[in-house]
């Protein structure tokens, strides 16, 4: 499935942070988003995942095609590794969890409670969720936080396999994941202009046309 984005503006707390963002992500391709902290990477990714509406613009892929992974892994510390993963597999239509456990190198931890996992292990479990969703477009927000070098390599391989199988990935990261052919998009040029310079003002402020009432 293509993920095509055209002239997208997103806002955080009522203030537009990015405007005019556009790109196309084809099956088998990966796109890495870069940009300084606070530019709106997370806001953009949440909009693409369907969690918040974009102020302007279209997102071609429906939220049902997108698997989203953010800073929080959505794990329950009172459940075991297998129980956590089985839950998400069941929610997404019941794929088996065994291949995902093997792939993310979690098989030996399967009966351990998530509370007793290290930060990196939790992260791997959170990413294993992507494999059981069966969704083609992965939208990843800093997926490698707290992963060690070996796990980063492992995750890079998982993404390569996903791309080879016809999936695609949109990743906000500062680390090189070693994905051949991955394009990079710097978000700095899309930083929203202030309204004085013709940038979007939002429905409420636009009505004032610059005057203070």
């Amino acid at each position: 499935m293509d993920l095509e984005i055209d002239n997208l503006s997103v806002s955080r707390g009522g203030v537009t942070v990015l405007e005019g963002v556009g790109f196309r992500l084809r099956p088998g391709a990966a796109l890495v988003l870069r940009g300084p902290n606070g530019i709106g990477k997370t806001t953009l990714l949440r909009s693409i995942a369907g969690l918040q509406p974009a102020t302007v613009g279209e997102i071609s892929a429906p939220p049902e095609a997108i698997a989203y992974a953010a800073h929080a892994d959505g794990l329950k510390s009172m459940l075991t590794v297998t129980e956590n993963l089985r839950f998400w597999a069941a929610v997404h239509g019941g794929a088996g969890v065994e291949p995902a456990l093997q792939r993310m190198n979690l098989a030996s931890l399967r009966d351990r409670q998530a509370a007793n996992l290290s930060a990196g292990q939790k992260r791997r479990l959170g990413l294993a969720r992507l494999l059981v969703t069966g969704r083609p477009v992965w939208v990843l927000d800093e997926p490698t936080v707290s992963l060690d070098a070996a796990s980063v390599t492992l995750f890079g391989e998982v993404i390569r396999d996903h791309l080879a199988a016809g999936g695609s990935a949109l990743i906000a990261t500062h680390i090189d994941l070693g994905i051949p052919g991955a394009e990079t998009l710097d978000l700095s040029p899309f930083r929203a202009r202030p309204p004085e310079q013709g940038g979007p003002a939002g429905a409420f402020d636009a009505a004032f046309g610059g005057d203070f009432a």
Partner: peptide, 8 residues
Amino acid sequence: GSLDLLAT
């Protein structure tokens, strides 16, 4: 973060 994931 589960609620985000449940919403999607």
